[in-house]
Simulated assay, not measured.
Amino acid sequence: MHPAAETAVLPASFVPLRLSDRPLAWKLLAVLLGTLFLAASSWIEVPMLPVPMTMQTFAITLVGATYGWRLGTLTVLAWLGQAMVGLPVLAGGAGGPQHFMGPTAGYLAAFPVAALLVGWLAERGWTGRGIAASFGTMLLGNFVILLLGAAWLSGLIGVDAALHAGVLPFLPGAFLKAGLAAALLVAWRRTGRSAVDQ
């Protein structure tokens, strides 16, 4: 393959906010705003069958993709820290340490892993290759959350019950949220609003 073609197919990186190049004050502000975005997205509930859909995992993968793996992971951890001390930042306005020990613990633990993975792939150009690769990246982040969450849940209620209660009902939402996040990233790149192009 011609070197120019390789560059076109495999962009080096697409992390729109380029926060790794910003001063510390910018990064701290980004973490604060990111936790607010995560909280607000968690409160949004869309009626769907078989279960309602929140925008929580949409926000987690988007933070990873736009912040990069380091700051994206840190932002998700900061948001979980807010939840741990009792702030109502989780889905349904939940908060408190009990959520980190019960059935939702595996999902919460998976959130920073998903942000890290999506951010790492974004820094290697996966979210800048086009809609298919971007969608696959965001969907992978959603799958990581569902699978790690179900792994914990299976220890409490068994594997079959965990799959039926903690994975299958959330698959339609995972596909929709991955598609929306991918579309936003592609639109961001095409409209030239990315800090990469400034």
Score class of each variant (00 low, 15 high):
residue 27 K to I: 02
residue 152 W to H: 08
residue 59 A to D: 13
residue 146 L to T: 04
residue 183 A to E: 12
residue 132 A to L: 02
residue 69 W to E: 11
residue 185 L to I: 07
residue 49 L to K: 14
residue 161 A to E: 11
residue 153 L to G: 01
residue 162 A to D: 00
residue 149 G to H: 03
residue 187 A to S: 09
residue 129 R to L: 01
residue 123 E to D: 05
residue 89 V to P: 09
residue 49 L to D: 06
residue 37 F to W: 05
residue 158 G to K: 03
residue 125 G to C: 05
residue 157 I to W: 05
residue 71 L to G: 09
residue 154 S to A: 08
residue 1 M to H: 01
residue 139 L to E: 14
residue 158 G to I: 02
residue 112 P to S: 01
residue 54 T to E: 11
residue 143 F to D: 01
residue 123 E to R: 06
residue 67 Y to F: 15
residue 123 E to P: 07
residue 167 V to I: 14
residue 26 W to C: 04
residue 190 R to D: 05
residue 169 P to L: 10
residue 46 V to F: 02
residue 134 S to L: 00
residue 173 G to I: 00
residue 36 L to V: 15
residue 145 I to Q: 05
residue 35 T to E: 01
residue 145 I to M: 10
residue 147 L to H: 01
residue 24 L to H: 05
residue 103 P to I: 11
residue 27 K to W: 04
residue 13 S to R: 15
residue 135 F to S: 03
residue 45 E to P: 00
residue 36 L to Q: 08
residue 28 L to N: 00
residue 42 S to Y: 03
residue 161 A to D: 09
residue 58 F to E: 15
residue 180 L to Y: 12
residue 53 M to S: 11
residue 17 L to P: 12
residue 143 F to E: 04
residue 160 D to K: 06
residue 159 V to E: 04
residue 111 F to A: 03
residue 74 L to T: 11
